[in-house]
């Protein structure tokens, strides 16, 4: 029993066929099988948020699903978001606001931030906190992370208003 199975999925826009053991989590598949180590693993039980990736454009925990479950889906990691320049402004704001120290939580924070910024909801500090409720950071005390996301939301809004005017 428990032979490997073939899966086909898109990772950062590229279609990949792979042979995986059913018990391999998506996080381990990304990090070990295809060497995308931007996605981190901490608790491996859905609590810390270090492993967040986008599955069909929604943030999910890569430690809470098996790679076989992603068969036929589109996965995007922090590397993909970076390469297609979807979070340039967010990364710049993280840098400027000192929203990371050791960086362990950062990939997960960026994926959560991407998700809440893309939701189109009106954001204030409380709703940003809410969106980050599943992301642990042991270094920053969160304030600077909320600052960076708030700043990005404001700049994007201003940019849109200028486009409309």
């Amino acid at each position: 029993m428990s032979g490997k199975v073939t899966i086909s999925l898109a990772v950062n826009g590229e279609t990949i066929e792979a042979l995986v053991a059913p018990r391999t989590t998506l996080a381990d598949f990304l990090r070990q099988d295809i060497q995308l180590t931007g996605t981190h693993t901490g608790c491996e039980m859905g609590v810390c948020g270090a492993c967040l990736v986008l599955l069909d454009d929604r943030p999910v925990h890569a430690c809470l699903m098996f790679a076989v479950q992603a068969d036929g889906c589109a996965v995007e990691t922090v590397e993909g978001l970076t390469h297609r320049r979807a979070i340039d402004d967010l990364q710049k704001a993280f840098h400027e606001r000192n929203a990371l120290q050791c960086g362990f939580c950062t990939a997960g924070m960026l994926v959560s931030a991407y998700g809440v910024l893309a939701s189109g909801d009106e954001l204030d500090r409380d709703s940003i906190r809410d969106a980050l409720s599943g992301n642990y950071c042991r270094c920053t005390g969160y304030e600077s992370i909320v600052d960076a996301i708030e700043t990005t939301a404001r700049l994007r809004r201003q940019h849109m208003e200028k486009e409309e005017a």
């Binding site: 967040l52 929604r58 998700g115 809440v116």
Partner: peptide
């Protein structure tokens, strides 16, 4: 739960 858990 949290947003990412609600997504699945």
């Amino acid at each position: 739960a949290h947003p990412a858990i609600r997504n699945k």
